[in-house]
Simulated scan of single mutants.
Amino acid sequence: MGIRMIPVPPMGAVDDVVVDRRTGESWTVRVEPFELAEAVVTCEEWDQTLGLPSDPAFAGHPRTGVSWREAITFCNRLSIREGLEPAYEISQRIVAEPTQWRPHSEPRPDDWDVVWNHHADGYRLPSDAEWQVACRAGTTGARYGALDAIGWYAGNSGGSSRPVRLKEPNGWGLFDMLGGVWEWCWDLYDADVYGSYRIIRGGGWSDAEWSCRSGVRRKTNPAASFDDLGFRLARGAMGVAPVRPS
Rank of each mutant, 00 (worst) to 15 (best):
G202W: 03
P103L: 02
R143S: 02
P107R: 11
S91L: 03
S161N: 10
D113P: 01
F231R: 08
A149Q: 12
N117G: 00
R235N: 02
L147H: 08
A208I: 09
V133Y: 03
G173V: 08
R143K: 04
G179A: 08
N170M: 06
E45H: 09
D55A: 10
C212Q: 14
V41C: 11
G141M: 01
D176G: 10
A71E: 08
M11F: 09
G215N: 12
T23Q: 06
G202V: 05
V243R: 14
S206Q: 13
P33N: 11
G2S: 13
V18W: 03
V29R: 12
E209S: 14
I6N: 10
M1F: 05
N156Y: 10
D228N: 11
R4W: 10
Y194T: 05
A137M: 06
E183V: 12
W46H: 14
T28N: 05
V193C: 05
M5T: 00
G65Y: 10
G203V: 03
S211R: 14
D15E: 15
E70C: 00
A224S: 13
P9E: 11
N170L: 10
V40A: 06
R30F: 02
E209R: 13
S157D: 11
Y144G: 02
T73N: 10
S105K: 06
V114D: 09
I94K: 12
R165F: 13
D111K: 01
